[in-house]
Design a binder for these strands. Structure first.
Lengths: 337, 337
DNA sequence: GCCATTCGTCGAAGCGCTTCGACTCGAAGG
DNA sequence: CCTTCGAGTCGAAGCGCTTCGACGAATGGC
């Protein structure tokens, strides 16, 4: 194994000089710099991560806590993880994978043992037991999603309230007057997953503002539940012409259910989804949708963390604006039926 | 930060004794052991990972190289990653996430800097550029999948040859005489992804052995391609009564295409899939399938790595036997049509 | 009852790096 | 011309842990 003293000897300098070339923390003459860099290259030197961490008390590793229980749409998570890993590498950091299961102890463990410098926590619930812990830890962290009590924490997510509004607004502009939000299964709401509530709130508020009739219904991602939900919805609101689906796995099932109930998309019913673009594009009828900007969230999360690690100030809350892409599933309301 | 000397002082022993209690590398009297453990608990001591890595030249971290390009079925990957993380934790190791993109340099980097003790590489291709590197590295590694030249490497995967055979065998026992394998898109075969070839080989060999007529066709995961593939297949083999699908995203599309072509499942066509159980169970008609044992592969991969780290001998190749689960999509061939 | 072990513990020497103070040298300032 | 300063470099002191050899005490064999 080649070490810093080897590099130093070959370059005719002291180890500390090599270190300073590497870190840039002191000025080095151009000539020395060149010699040292050549020496590093020729020997294929790579600093020992442990030694570096010990001496500098920086491990250059971020922890990423992922919900490996399925449920949340996987592709979104993968995109997110990929963006985190890639962005972290761009800042000379690596990513340690922690599972949700490890819970608070896991966070404490990697923090106390100085395995990582900072934490990214995904799938944050409204009442998340990890929130107080993260506040107390000496390590910087970024949460994906917002707990009920977010002060003192740095959080980032798609702006779901605005997302609900955007969907309604799009339908309103097309002339729709009676709309519904088909959301996540009841247990997601019960679990207190903030985004579900927020979308519903934005949806309802915007509908009221536009003077539209609106309903919010949860929906299990099964064929039967989709069928039943749609039937009930159409029974209660026979003049329904617009629907927003915020439930990825149920999207195809609901589409199918609407069609079986005699509603053609988009002729009789305009459909907007909140889901990854990929899914919206590949549906039988491409669906107008607000994308989940997973990659951007991941990238921004890492940037926030890097800022915090370098004592740069960061905003407490980062809400990414929703972007609605029009596809074939929405159309102006048939003027007079 | 509480360190080993603090623990030692409070327990009335030397730091080395604390270290030996922690590692169990020397015998310690029960009384001392108890005092030290109490001291550790009371102070909430956690060894500094960097210091430990430096002194012991063991980081207790495994690298997991994941293909974050999508394509391969995501849920399978997630299950796999989850199993790796969980099993690693069971052996007191953590998992560092590397993306496929980082390629060989990434492997070299984490190896040379002693960031990790061992490597798990997913999505191995038949002609994988990383194979020679892994052979040369001083770190133990396990590959998920088999490269063409596998000697000197430790590999693990589902036994795809046996999988192809198992599917045929199941169909044969049900009386089918003319069967087809609908596989991955052509580019997967071209890329040299071993598992596709191996399934086809097992399938073809078994069909010959049973004296059955057999065909192998690739299929793109699009509605149009599925339609076309099925039409061609039925045109060329009008007496087809059994099909094996080894292409997760195309499974629903192919099922649909068969039905549109007038083949009811399982009355007219018995369908076997090679796919995660979850997918097979939730199809419109639950599909008889050979599961991809992602979790088991992940777990076994870590176990293999741990064995290698402890200088225990391990087999070069581990092939997990396929397990076929009967569901509603296969039935005896209609005796006389 | 004496020597040879074994058991349990300690002290000290690193592991490879960063960083702080100190030092040298040449340029700038009075 | 002497002082002051900054740029550039070095040496040494750790960072917190593991591990090796050594040592005293207890044990067992003869």
């Amino acid at each position: 194994m080649v070490k810093i003293t080897d590099v130093a000897r070959r370059a005719g300098v002291s180890p500390s000089t090599v270190s300073y070339v590497l870190s840039g923390k002191r000025s080095i003459s151009a000539a020395t710099q060149r010699r040292v860099e050549a020496s590093i290259r020729e020997l294929g030197y790579r600093p020992h991560a442990g030694a570096r961490a010990l001496a500098s008390s920086r491990s250059n590793v971020l922890a990423l806590v992922m919900p490996l229980r399925s449920g949340i749409h996987l592709p979104v998570q993968m995109q997110f993880a990929g963006a985190v890993a890639t962005t972290a590498r761009g800042h000379d950091h690596d990513v340690l994978l922690l599972t949700q299961e490890e819970g608070e102890d896991g966070l404490r463990r990697v923090a106390d043992s100085a395995l990582v410098d900072a934490l990214i926590v995904m799938d944050v619930q409204l009442r998340d037991a990890r929130a107080p812990l993260l506040r107390a830890l000496p390590l910087p962290s970024v949460l994906i999603g917002f707990p009920a009590e977010a002060d003192g924490l740095t959080c980032i997510d798609l702006d779901f309230t605005a997302t609900g509004e955007t969907c309604v607004s799009h339908l309103a502009q097309l002339g729709h007057r009676c709309v519904a939000l088909l959301g996540s299964p009841p247990e997601v709401y019960a679990r207190g997953t903030g985004f579900a509530q927020r979308t519903a709130a934005g949806f309802t508020a915007a509908a009221r503002r536009y003077g539209m009739t609106s309903t919010v219904l949860p929906c299990e991602p099964t064929r039967a539940a989709a069928r039943e939900t749609v039937d009930r919805l159409l029974h209660d609101h026979p003049d329904l012409t617009g629907a927003v689906v915020h439930n990825e796995p149920a999207l195809p099932l609901l589409t199918e259910a609407f069609q079986q109930a005699g509603m053609r998309v988009p002729e009789d019913l305009s459909l907007v989804a909140v889901c990854p673009d990929e899914l919206a594009e590949n549906a039988a009828v491409p669906v107008t949708s607000v994308a989940i900007p997973a990659a951007e969230v991941g990238e921004r999360a890492v940037e926030l963390l890097m800022a915090k690690l370098n004592d740069r100030p960061v905003p407490d809350a980062t809400l990414l604006p929703p972007v609605l892409t029009r596809r074939a599933s929405t159309a102006p309301r048939a003027s007079a039926s």
